[in-house]
């Protein structure tokens, strides 16, 4: 086994272990912090697979922005008392059986398919190459994604502040009405 193969196995073991610990935590802050560990491992995996820009974006966006957003929400609202029991057996046993069957079948399929067992070569796409490729061939998808992000900002603002703004408007309307009378 080469050095890179060994690195791949170590990183994947850490990712799977951190994710498995994260989804079984009762305390939401612990779960989010374990997931940050898992996403750092994913970033290292991306770097190993020759995507340094995506590795940086994974750390900045996933481990940085998204998980901090989760932490903000968990800390803003007292969320500890949400669940009395984390795992109810009648719910988790069927789910675990189905997930296990899927993983086993998918693993058998992946290993059995010809052409899958050749080791991957080390290749790397520099950020400049990747950016040129994206803006040359995928520029329309970039525009669609930018529209999606704009809509997300509008939607989140509307959900977060919409009711309060509406109430203020209503109060002002009532004041206006009384002033008119």
């Amino acid at each position: 086994m080469t050095l890179y193969g060994m690195l791949f196995h170590i990183i994947s073991a850490v990712i799977i272990a951190a994710t498995a610990v994260a989804i079984t935590r009762k305390n939401l802050v612990h779960a989010v912090v374990y997931l940050i560990v898992s996403f750092f491992g994913t970033a290292m995996l991306f770097y190993l697979f020759g995507a340094p820009l995506l590795a940086a974006l994974e750390v900045i966006i996933y481990a940085g922005a998204i998980m901090v957003l989760f932490l903000f929400v968990v800390m803003m609202i007292r969320a500890e008392s949400a669940e009395k029991k984390v795992f109810v057996p009648i719910q988790w046993i069927p789910a675990a059986i189905f997930c296990l069957i899927y993983v086993l079948v998918a693993a058998a399929m992946a290993v059995g398919t010809p052409g899958m067992n050749a080791p991957l070569k080390m290749l790397s796409a520099s950020p400049a190459q990747f950016a040129i490729y994206v803006f040359k061939y995928q520029w329309f998808s970039i525009e669609v994604v930018s529209m999606l992000l704009l809509l997300a900002v509008i939607g989140a603002l509307n959900l977060g502040a919409g009711r309060r703004a509406g109430r203020v408007d209503e109060e002002r309307r009532i004041e206006d009405d009384s002033a008119l009378q």
Binding site: F8, S12, V111, T113, P119, L120
Partner: peptide, 10 residues
């Protein structure tokens, strides 16, 4: 040489 693609899939 990294691991084969099937292991990534697993």
């Amino acid at each position: 040489m990294i691991a084969p693609f099937s292991e990534v899939l697993v």
